[in-house]
C-alpha cells in the first residue's frame, strides 16, 4: 500500500485530532459546562478535611482556605461514634440485598413484557408500572404503613389464616425485607424503561433468522435478547456499584423508626440525626467523600471484572 512510513505515536494523535476536529468541537460545550459546574465546586471538597467555619476568612469562599486543616480528624470522629459500625454494616447489607434482589427484576420484567404480542397491552402495563416512581417516599411510606400496621389488611389476612400478627415495620427481622419489597414496588417499572429501550434497539433480523432456524421462545430470549441487553445490564450494574454507599436515604428516612435502628440505621440517617441543629458542613462533606471513594473503588473493580467476564465495560 501507499503509506508505509513509520509515523510516531504522537504524530498519529495529532493527525487524528486534526482530521476529527469536529468531534472535539462536539465535546467542547459539555467540557466547559462540567468545568464550571462540576469541577470548580470540587475545590470545596477540602471542607471534608478542614474545621470549616463560615466566617473564618471573612466570606464563606475564603473561609474554605482559612479554616484550620485537620486532615482525617473529621471522618475519624464519625468512625469513632458508638453506633457507626452498626450503621456501616447496615448500609452495606441493605445495599447488597437491594442489588441482589431488585437489580434483576426490571430486566426480567422487560423481557417478559416484551414477549407479549399485543402492543396495547405492553403500552398499558408500562404506563401503570412506572406510576409509583413519581410518589415521594414520604407518601409511599404512608401507604406501606397503612398496609402493614397491626390492623392493616396484610395482618388481617394473616390472622384470618390463623397466624400471629407480624410487626413488619417494628421488627428487625422483617424491616429490611420490607425495605426491599417497597423499593421493588416503587422502582421496577421505572428501571425497566432502559431495558425496553435497549430491546427496542435490537436488530430484528436476528430474530427473524432465529425463527427460520426453528428457535423456541426461550431460545430466542436466551440467545438473542439477553446478550443484546448485556451492555446495558453491565453499565447499570457498574453504576449501581458506584452508589453502594447510598442504601436509600430518602426511603429509610421516611420509613424507619427507633425500634428498627438496629437493622436499618444507615450511615446517612445516623449522621443526619447526630448533625441536627449543628451547622456542621465538614462532617457532611467528609462522609460524602468517604462514600464517594468507596464508590469509585467499586466502579473501577467491577469495570475490570466485567471486562474479564463479559468483554463489556464502561470504558
Amino acid at each position: 500500500m501507499a503509506n508505509t512510513k513509520k509515523v510516531s505515536a504522537g504524530r498519529k494523535k495529532l493527525l487524528y485530532v486534526r482530521k476529527n476536529y469536529d468531534l472535539y468541537l462536539l465535546l467542547v460545550p459539555t467540557l466547559v459546562f462540567i468545568a464550571i459546574f462540576n469541577l470548580v465546586p470540587l475545590w470545596g471538597l477540602q471542607i471534608a478535611f478542614r474545621d470549616y467555619k463560615l466566617m473564618a476568612g471573612g466570606t464563606p469562599w475564603r473561609s474554605i482556605w482559612a479554616s484550620k486543616w485537620v486532615g482525617l480528624n473529621i471522618i475519624s470522629k464519625v468512625f469513632g461514634k458508638s453506633e457507626f459500625t452498626r450503621a456501616l454494616r447496615n448500609t452495606l447489607v441493605i445495599s447488597a440485598m437491594k442489588i441482589v434482589f431488585t437489580f434483576p427484576l426490571p430486566i426480567v420484567f422487560a423481557i417478559f413484557l416484551n414477549e407479549v404480542r399485543s402492543n396495547g397491552f405492553q403500552k398499558g402495563l408500562q404506563l401503570i408500572v412506572y406510576l409509583p416512581h413519581f410518589l415521594s417516599w414520604v407518601v409511599v411510606s404512608g401507604l406501606f404503613v397503612s398496609l402493614l400496621n397491626s390492623m392493616g389488611p396484610v395482618n388481617k389476612l394473616i390472622t384470618s389464616l390463623g397466624g400471629a400478627k407480624i410487626r413488619f415495620l417494628m421488627d428487625n427481622s422483617w424491616f429490611r425485607t420490607i425495605l426491599i419489597v417497597s423499593e421493588a414496588w416503587k422502582e421496577i417499572g421505572w428501571s425497566s424503561i432502559i431495558y425496553f429501550a435497549a430491546i427496542a434497539g435490537l436488530d430484528m433480523e436476528c430474530y427473524e433468522a432465529a425463527i427460520v432456524d426453528g428457535a423456541s421462545r426461550f431460545q430466542k430470549m436466551w440467545y438473542i435478547t439477553l446478550p443484546g441487553l448485556l451492555p446495558t445490564v453491565v453499565l447499570m450494574l457498574i453504576i449501581r456499584m458506584g452508589n453502594i454507599m447510598d442504601a436509600g436515604f430518602s426511603q429509610i428516612f421516611a420509613m424507619y423508626n427507633p425500634t428498627v435502628y438496629e437493622s436499618a440505621d444507615i450511615i446517612g440517617t445516623y449522621v443526619y440525626r447526630l448533625g441536627l441543629g449543628k451547622l456542621d458542613f465538614s462532617t457532611g462533606t467528609a462522609v460524602g467523600v468517604f462514600n464517594s471513594i468507596i464508590g469509585l473503588v467499586l466502579v473501577l473493580l467491577s469495570n475490570v471484572f466485567a471486562k474479564r467476564a463479559t468483554g463489556k465495560s464502561i470504558w
Binding site: P258, T259, Y261, R273, L274, G275, L276, G277, K278
Partner: peptide
Amino acid sequence: IKDNEAAINTMINDELLIAITN
C-alpha cells in the same frame, strides 16, 4: 445549648421510645 439540644432531644426520644416498647 443551641449546638446540641436538637441531637440530644432526638436521641432521648428515640431511646426512651425503644424502652417503652421493649
